[in-house]
């Protein structure tokens, strides 16, 4: 049994998700169907977007902000941060530039979210 808060609307319903039978997951506590769908996805394959910083060489700033272009499996958050910590890119960097392609084999690229000029 997992307890979750539905984030789809301000109601913030407290869901109970019984996933003992993966084929027949039972969600209770939801007020509407969106809560049910959310509960099932959250226990089967929770995903998150990751945002962080990557070191820049020769730029006006020492770091550039970045994001995974799409959400990646939640359990890979810390591994992906480790990859980003060890990544260095050369200035200039523009929004949308791919900084790490296909991070951890997820098929998702990490892209820059700000511009850093060369100095």
């Amino acid at each position: 049994m997992r307890e979750l808060i539905c984030i789809n609307c301000p109601m913030g319903c407290h869901l109970k998700v019984d996933d003992t039978d993966k084929e027949n997951i039972i969600v209770t506590g939801n007020t509407c169907n969106r809560g049910k769908v959310y509960g099932i996805n959250e226990v089967l394959h929770p995903k998150r977007m990751v945002t962080s910083l990557v070191t820049v060489i020769g730029g006006e700033h020492a770091v550039v902000s970045c994001k995974t272009k799409e959400a990646i499996p939640k359990e890979l958050i810390f591994d992906s941060l480790e990859v980003l910590k060890n990544t260095k890119v050369n200035a200039p960097v523009s929004i949308g530039d791919v900084l790490v392609s296909n991070i951890l084999g997820t098929g998702v690229d990490v892209v820059a979210t700000s511009n850093v000029k060369r100095v």
Binding site: M49, T51, S52, L53, S65, K67, I95, T113, S114
Partner: peptide
């Protein structure tokens, strides 16, 4: 604000602050 969650209403996209 380098996290995502900006612009859902304006651009129908989850942007970060700098974007």
């Amino acid at each position: 604000c380098i996290h995502n969650g900006f612009g859902l209403h304006t651009f129908n996209e989850e942007l970060t602050g700098p974007e």
